[in-house]
Design a protein around this nucleic acid. Structure first.
Lengths: 216, 216, 216, 216
DNA sequence: CATGAATGAGGATTCATTCAT
DNA sequence: AATGAATGAATCCTCATTCAT
């Protein structure tokens, strides 16, 4: 019993430490950017020794991956609450709610959003364990699921054109994401000359209209 | 006369060399990724001394910028030929042609496409001359212009909903780009579980349908 | 208590290492000259990895600055002991003692002397922290202070011509330094064709005689 | 006869070219400082190819040495004209004239003066031919000779203390040079807190006074 | 567990000098 | 003679990761 108590306290301390490192990493990554961030900076901000970081995370990229998980959780919070508070509405309206929630996330958590978009093809997959990668995938999916469900509802109601709801959700998300990504790069922002909000709303409206069931 | 011939030959040789370096850089960047590529690798692949690279390009980033310009030119070729060969068709059809051309570029020049998407926020603008940056912007715009023109035609014909053609083009491009970007990342590709082609076609159809003028 | 002991040992080890690097740097700078010295050489001579050097000194120039500080301290030891052991004598005699002490430093620490003379105008101030620069200035002043005090005494005694003692000290120091610097360059040494010692003694005698109060 | 004419023209052209390179080098060295100057810059400023520079000077240091020769010639002009225009005065007055001329040179040709002081022990002697080095020595001596002669006159007149005039000249020059050098370094200038002019004049007065023959 | 000193393989860029044309 | 392209060693500094204590 005593031992169990001890070990659970140990466990908690360990979790605390991990959280502390993640918090520091978040600060650093968001402050100086992913590429300029160094493990030294993270350790310094967490007020621990550099070696200690490696007791909790095998790799710098792994820390990044955990931050990504955090970001995905936050996003999921946004989406799920949008989903549940729009329970009374029809499918299209719920999709709109979800889309606005995604935009809200983009606005309120720009750093996490940047993180989500910044993952590099190679660098990443190589230096993160398969399990972690799988986990990220699962969490990502969880967010998309709400969209799929709303789409399903819309199709069931006959308001949206019949089809695979997952395909529909994928399309919508891809298009909306495109609007956000386009404007996240200075070069591309100059290119489209539009405010993110306008562009995002435009794509959302257009996609939803395009997805509606036709009478003819 | 003789001198002119000589100097033009010189010029040509110089251009050849530049091209050779760019070719090597292309290989290297595409092989190992932008972040992992080093000037050493480029020089080695071009079979020249490292210092020689710097006779032709003041900076590693400048080489990247030139590759980007190449990519943009190629894309523009795709788009302009789509635009001109669809001269007889209506606006929406021309947009469709342009979109297919963009997809063709994505398929035929995956490396250039990756390059276009991979530009980093800060790092880049800092280490490239203002003129070069401007040039890139201009070339990027040139591609979008075709889309704007087709959109304008569609609006003029009354087939597409009235509005700012540039805004319309921006939305369409952002959405389509989103479809390509989503699938260009392994993680995100797993997420949407769709073939790029399907997704892209879906977004295109949906957007075009959504952009159509309503009778009501 | 135990911790304090540990940490003080740690501190000592750290200081030792720093000293070791400085010693290596001293050797290297003195061997090959300031301009030819590289961080690689210093690391090799200290038998540590190159990166380790940067754990102790942020910049190559900073190492140099620390060596300079060492040199200034040594010089100050020479001067202060000359000042105190001549406490019974009059101002002029004390100036003479100080001057001989400076010469003694030049003879016994030729490398430090060279270092003191070799600092480069721009390069240096740029790459050393303001604090360090200030420190060097302060330490330099400390040495001059003894000369100022002896001059003051001489003026007070009426043996030296009245005037600003700091100005007097500056003049004396500049002239003596000139004698050392002239001979420190092979070209210039060949020029004056005199032994340093003779030249230095001559300048010292002449300056002191020129500084004496006149009766007329 | 014709050949001789031709070859003399050739010779002249060659000299012109050499002069042109030196002029360019002067500009560059004085503009960006000795250490930052590159052969590229010199060639560019001279509007010739970089390789051509090496047809006229075997080494970058050799160019520097030739500039030094120019500087020494200019200095000699200053000194000799001071010597000749003071022909009617006594030895001490002539020394004073020469010293003022040296100061005039320091003020009017600060770049040449800097050059004269900036020669590095090792770097220099290694990369310049023995003949050139000898030449520099000779030219340097030529300037000092005027001082020696004036000193000799002063001693002969009985106004200056008897002794070796060359030794006297060396001492005077060393002391005056010390005053200029001290103030040429920011750190040392802060140290003595005096204007160059004051310091120089002070050292000059003091040295001359100290060199005077005593009646007693 | 925690530490933090040590590592050393890079990495981008510079520049005096050479040499084929 | 003149060119100017090519060289490649040299240089300072960074940083993820390891490991003895």
């Amino acid at each position: 019993m005593a031992r169990s108590a001890t070990s659970s306290r140990r466990l908690k301390e360990k979790e605390d430490r991990k959280e502390r490192i993640l918090a520091a990493a978040r600060d650093v990554f968001f402050d100086v950017g992913i590429r300029r961030a160094t493990v030294d900076m993270i350790a310094a901000r967490a007020e621990i020794a550099k070696g200690t970081v490696y007791l909790y995370f095998p790799t710098k990229e792994t820390i990044l991956a955990h931050l990504l998980l955090e970001g995905l959780d936050t996003l999921n919070d946004h989406l799920s609450s949008a989903f549940y508070s729009s329970a009374q509405l029809d499918g299209e309206a719920r999709l709109r709610w979800l889309a606005r929630a995604y935009y809200g996330y983009y606005v309120q958590e720009p750093d996490y959003f940047r993180l989500m978009m910044a993952f590099d093809r190679g660098q990443f997959q190589e230096s993160v364990s398969a399990e972690l990668y799988e986990l990220i995938l699962l969490r990502s999916l969880r967010g998309l699921r709400w969209v799929v469900e709303a789409a399903q509802q819309g199709i069931r109601e006959g308001k949206l054109a019949p089809g695979d709801p997952r395909q529909l959700a994928g399309m919508l998300w891809a298009a909306l994401n495109g609007a956000l990504v386009v404007t996240s790069h200075p070069l591309r922002r100059e290119l489209v000359e539009q405010e993110v909000e306008t562009l995002y709303a435009g794509v959302l409206d257009t996609m939803l209209r395009g997805l509606r069931a036709r009478r003819d």
